[in-house]
Design a binder for these strands. Structure first.
Length: 283
DNA sequence: CGATGCCCCTGAGAGC
DNA sequence: TGCTCTCAGGGGCATC
């Protein structure tokens, strides 16, 4: 999926087109994505104002003046693409809906936002804003990695005694919210920690270092507009370009970029997913 | 309770 | 050209 940096990039791209704007109507072109859509979704997304656009973990949150919040999860291949009239006067031509264009939002200002998702692992729901934290997408999430609650004492406490690997611990959204396979690989490379190391056996100085590198990796990726592999696009259709900065992810067989390291990046499979790392400098 | 596989779905690319 | 196989950014659920 789009991980935290991709979702944040999409949020920033959508903000000028959606925040403070009225939705005139919303076309809901199928009954479900990963799960059934909420009851009366089209009606509840018509003639309402989007007050603000937020993000929690990998979930986009659009607070509506109806008292509902729209939750959007992009899954593995979801995109939100803007067409029509943009606030700055730009005009992206509108095309006929494609096979995987599942939901289309129309704003009073003349913009349309198309949710496209070939694999349909994405999801949308509507939930009372006042009770958002009870929604199953958001309940049980760990802290935001870019927030103050994510720090070395916290992470150290959560990793203590864990017998699973550090790779799977960082992918566990209950421990820290928003990381996925790419950014875990990259952050572990930057921190010089093997993805195979047991979570409870990462030394305290290494945990401190890891927290810093997770934050820096995500910040760098957001600054680059996210990573575009196959499906991901920013809301304006542009590619992200953080993939050109990958040191580990997808770099199997490439020389390790760490200064003074002569290792080769290798791919291993952990719980059915690829981990890329340099066995020479990640310990 | 925690760890591990399997599964949802479509499409791209490799190999034959 | 076309078939088959593997793989893909996520995460819920069954099972042990």
């Amino acid at each position: 999926m789009p991980e935290l940096p991709e979702v944040e990039t999409v949020r920033r791209g959508l903000e000028p087109v959606l925040a403070g704007q009225r939705l005139t109507h919303t076309d809901v072109r199928r009954p479900d994505l990963r799960w059934p859509f909420p009851k009366n979704m089209s009606e509840r997304l018509s003639d309402v104002c989007v007050m603000q656009l937020r993000r929690r973990s990998k979930v986009l949150l659009a607070d509506l003046d109806s008292g509902d919040t729209l939750l959007v999860h992009l899954g593995m291949s979801g995109r939100m693409l803007i067409e029509g009239t943009m606030p700055g006067g730009f005009h992206h031509p509108q095309s006929a809906p494609g096979k995987h264009d599942h939901v289309i939002f129309h704003t009073e200002a003349g913009a349309s936002i198309t949710f496209n998702d070939p694999r349909r692992f994405g999801a949308m729901d509507l939930w009372p804003t006042a009770e958002l934290e009870t929604h199953r997408f958001l309940a049980n999430l760990g802290p935001e990695p870019l927030g103050n609650d994510f720090n070395a004492p916290y992470l150290s406490g959560r990793l203590k005694g864990k017998g699973s690997t550090i790779k799977s611990a960082l992918l566990d959204q209950r421990i820290v919210a928003g990381l996925g396979n790419i950014y875990v690989c990259e952050a572990l490379w930057r921190a010089g920690i093997s993805p195979k190391r047991l979570a409870g056996k990462v030394s305290r100085p290494k945990v401190e270092n890891l927290v810093v590198h997770i934050r820096e990796t995500l910040a760098d990726a957001i600054a680059a507009g996210g990573s575009s592999l196959r499906d991901y696009r920013q809301a304006d259709g542009e590619l992200g370009y953080f993939q050109h900065s990958f040191a580990a992810y997808g770099q199997e067989g490439e020389p390790c970029q760490r200064e003074g390291c002569s290792g080769i990046v290798q791919r291993i499979v952990q719980s059915g997913r690829s981990s890329f790392h340099c066995a020479r400098c990640q310990k």
